[in-house]
Design a protein around this nucleic acid. Structure first.
Lengths: 351, 351
DNA sequence: ATGAAAGCGCTAACAG
DNA sequence: CTGTTAGCGCTTTCAT
């Protein structure tokens, strides 16, 4: 039932070669013949078989996206961005979700899927091992990472250390000196560098203000809301004084923390200032001050670079540091009793 | 550089036919030869070319997912579910995002992409036109819809009318009689039936309790948080009495409404009860009472049915109504001054 | 159990 | 401007 190029050729009284040229808009085909061929193709409902042309050309016209998750903000937005750029061209998007950071990686990298299925690959928030990278390079497909730097591979990302510094400095500028830190960075993150970079940015900002991070206010999360809630519980339940502000490495964790604070009657920002990174879709409604980044755009840029490279523009793939900026909302304010650097604990709330 | 089946055959001193059988685990190949072939293939890093086998067999071993969005909860979770099921087998997932409900549809359905690229298709929350459906059937690929019923096509979904009824009845059982309705259903939803079904469920529940929907408390949204916020603003800013409860057709809208209520000092649930549908990841942290559904599971089920059908189990694709249930949290409570059916307005807040 | 050979549908020289 | 002719890499009868 599927109509092939031969059918069109027969119907139009030309060779398959001419049909091929006509359909693809190649030069050297008489306008009249082309018109006739197109008409026939249309009438017959002809669509070229992608596998056949892939086999003949070696090009798949599809771009792969490998990601640890699809159902988290950064990832979903990125994928949407890649897709948006691709659908403007005629590329397809083959999605590989790992369902976590560490799982199943060699299914992809060690000689399987990827190869021969895609023309280029975008890697979301994954730190590739030297071996994986080597394998990918051996395959010789254009490659771009997103969401953080990857050694030996161009990427599209914000300056994570800077983002963390800007956020922290905003708190410091407001007068905060007792600042907790809710960071990502559990081991299953497969030593992806982003958690580390944000931590460095936080600590650097603190240091510049003559402050040091407090171990008792160091909270580990995994970037999810649920984890933000749990971290908040640990923080609020712990004995000892509370901080006057919390820097969260992601908005999702910040929002979790805010929910828990609300539940306990801890007022934001009067009792506690909270800042995040991302500008998640819930951040504006929640009034969360944050550092905005735009993964939709990152995805579009990454896809564009890949397609340009494939179209023969060498050097189209460039390491790219994307824009970010502080978005002031209502979750941050000066501390009620501005603490001096060596006095603290007076803000402790009675719950 | 890419090693082909011929290379393996040569190296193992067998024909390509034997290599093909050996690799695919087909019977009628000597265990010893098979072992040798596998060893050679492994040593050479051989991977079969998908396009070549697709061309030869007519099977692509990839399943398509077409969706209006990837960056919203229901869609992202569904896609994750489909992917999860597929990666347990050896199918790939080709993702087509429309970037909205109405956009670009014929790029997909009218003789383009889909055809010859995928073995089966899952359609997320899209109501197909008769023409689109006809086209899809003509292509003869297994098809399953998700997220709502689609005439002429099996789907995996909850009973939306029932979900809305259960939610509404929960409010009524608590003593509410002044219930607002924040529903989806703007025209760009491409007349997808879900908004309508949920509205019907809401109104049916009201009717059973001898209540009628109030036009002034009928709020239109589009399922997003941002829209929930705007709807809440309209509700709270309007002159006249406020309802004592709001039934929201999605958690995302309910959460937006809650954020806006918080901002205005309207207390949930003391001043206003709120219930949603979904059990979004933010609902538990926010304490939102809701009707839970599990799109991750829906996606897995849909993918499983498709693969079974492709594996030769006729009738594997069945119309499926998935589980749902009421999850009680802290956003609903009895109204402060239980209103009688014909007295209202006394709950109006002084803002 | 294995091989020979045709063919899947398209593209890419090379002729003309 | 158009047709002929090889493949692309795999699968699949049909022989042996």
């Amino acid at each position: 039932m599927p109509v092939s190029i031969g059918d069109v050729a027969a119907e139009a009284n030309v060779s398959t070669a001419t049909v091929s040229r006509a359909i693809r808009g190649l030069p050297r085909v008489n306008p009249a013949t082309r018109a006739r061929i197109l008409a026939v193709a249309d009438a017959l409902g002809y669509v070229a078989s992608p596998s056949a042309s892939t086999l003949a050309t070696g090009r798949t016209r599809t771009i792969g996206v490998v990601t640890p998750f699809v159902d988290r903000w950064y990832f979903a937005r990125s994928i949407e961005g890649v897709d948006k750029a691709l659908r403007a061209s005629t590329y397809n998007l083959l999605l590989f979700s790992l369902g976590g950071f560490a799982k199943d990686r060699d299914r992809l990298f060690n000689r399987n899927m990827v190869r021969k299925q895609i023309d280029a690959l975008v890697v979301l928030c994954l730190s590739l091992t030297a071996e994986e990278l080597d394998h990918l390079h051996r395959i010789e497909i254009p490659l771009i990472a997103m969401g953080g730097p990857v050694a030996g591979c161009a990427s599209v990302r914000i300056d994570d250390a800077l983002a963390a510094s800007v956020a922290t400095e905003h708190l410091i500028a407001l007068g905060h000196r007792d600042i907790a830190h809710l960071h990502g960075g559990r081991q299953d993150d497969q030593n992806f560098t982003v958690p580390r970079l944000r931590t460095e940015g936080f600590e650097a900002a603190l240091a510049r203000a003559g402050l040091r991070p407090r171990p008792e206010w160091d909270l580990t999360g995994d970037y999810t809301v649920a984890n933000g809630v749990r971290a908040a519980q640990r923080l609020f339940d712990a004995p000892g004084p509370l901080p006057t502000a919390v820097f969260c490495a992601s908005d999702e964790m910040a929002l979790g923390l805010i929910f828990e604070a609300n539940r306990r009657g801890i007022r934001i920002p009067q009792d506690l200032s909270v800042i995040g990174i991302d500008d998640h879709e819930f951040s504006q409604p929640a009034g969360l001050t944050t550092i905005r980044q735009d993964p939709l755009k990152h995805g579009m840029v990454a896809a564009r670079m890949l397609m340009d490279e494939l179209d023969g523009l060498p050097g189209a793939i460039r390491d790219t540091v994307a824009a970010q900026h502080l978005v002031l909302r209502s979750s941050t304010a000066p501390p009620r009793n501005p603490a001096s650097s060596d006095s603290f604990g007076r803000q402790t709330l009675q719950l």
